[in-house]
């Protein structure tokens, strides 16, 4: 078994890494909103699901790809991928903002406490997934393949596939942009201020609603990007895809320390790799069990997650 594992180590690691980066981007959607509102935005999983469909709309409907089309190459390929990424991010980002306005804003103004937004989030989540289910006739939907999944090279025994490479590099770039945004811009500073102390931030003249909208927008953009990358890698989606991925990303956020951007990063990576290795060693049926045992063990020693102690400094 160990010998087999070593044979497959790098190919498992690459698969786990690209899955991990998808988790990171979704986890950012959870963690940013939690940082600012101390609330779990359960609808984020459906924001992701909508992002996968937005990607398919571009590839299948705008560029007219089918399952028997020739693959795109050169400039046209990058144009298609770029359009799909931006569209998925915008759709998810705007939807995320709308969800906040419709489902949470009034509750927050009326000081409803923590439970009402929670049920409101679950409600939004159900409305979104059931609407898409009805629109898709309950069927899974596939993205036609626009890009040939070729191997770029070998690393030890593992082939490095182009889609995994694109995911890892683009996700790193997006993450770097997000960190810069939160740490260097005015809006980023405002988000951090609201997350530390909303009342003090309001007294300093910060427009709380604006900051919260921006947070949902940024979280949605990241989650939408995850939808694009997911579709690029797996090419299949359905109205229910959000639940499983959402739980996984939420777990990643908790593992890293929810409310903490860096925590989402390491939590996502750890989860992606852990899931992949555990599935190989123990069988895929033990994946979830292993992941949650590890999560509980981590929380035993670090109740706020791996990066929980830094919560007050880099929150948001």
């Amino acid at each position: 078994m160990i010998g087999n594992f070593l044979d497959q180590f790098w190919s498992l690691t690459f698969g786990g890494l690209s899955l991990g980066f998808i988790y990171i981007l979704i986890a950012l959607g959870y963690t940013m909103v939690y940082g600012v509102l101390r609330m779990i935005n359960f609808a984020n999983s459906e924001i992701f699901m909508v992002g996968t469909f937005a990607t398919i709309i571009i590839i299948r409907d705008l560029f007219k790809f089918t399952q028997v089309s020739e693959y795109a190459t050169g400039f046209r390929l990058w144009l298609i991928l770029g359009t799909a990424l931006i569209f998925a991010m915008l759709v998810s980002g705007i939807l995320s903002m709308l969800v906040e306005m419709v489902a949470y804003r009034r509750l927050r103004r009326m000081n409803s406490g923590v439970l009402a937004p929670l049920i409101s989030a679950i409600g939004v989540s159900m409305v979104l997934s059931e609407s898409v289910r009805i629109l898709t006739d309950s069927r899974p939907v596939a993205s036609p393949r626009a890009m040939e999944k070729k191997f770029l090279g070998q690393f030890f025994d593992a082939g490095i596939r182009i889609d995994n490479t694109i995911i890892v590099i683009s996700a790193l770039v997006l993450f770097a942009i997000l960190i810069t945004f939160v740490n260097k811009t005015r809006m980023g500073k405002a988000i951090r201020a609201v997350s530390m102390n909303p009342n003090a931030a309001r007294l300093m003249g910060i427009n709380i609603d604006g900051v919260i909208s921006a947070t949902f927008l940024v979280g949605g953009l990241m989650t939408g990007a995850a939808g694009f990358f997911y579709t690029l890698k797996y090419e299949n989606t359905s109205a229910f895809i959000g639940f499983e991925l959402g739980i996984a990303a939420f777990t990643a956020a908790i593992l890293g320390g929810i409310g903490n951007i860096k925590g989402a990063f390491y939590g996502g990576l750890a989860l992606g790799l852990l899931e992949t290795y555990a599935s190989f060693f123990l069988g895929t049926q033990w994946k979830a069990v292993t992941v949650f045992i590890v999560l509980v063990l981590v929380l035993y020693t670090k109740p706020n997650g791996l990066f929980g102690e830094a919560l007050t400094q880099t929150r948001a």
Binding site: N4, D7, Q8, S11, L12, G15, G16, L19, Y230, Y234, N236, I241, E244, L245, E275, T276, A278, S279, F280, G283, T284, Q285, K287, A288
Partner: peptide, 18 residues
């Protein structure tokens, strides 16, 4: 034996190749 919620099959694929 793989959950019907599985989206990433790399572990099973590794076993098949092995």
């Amino acid at each position: 034996s793989v959950s019907d919620k599985t989206t990433d099959w790399s572990a099973t694929i590794s076993k098949i190749k092995t």
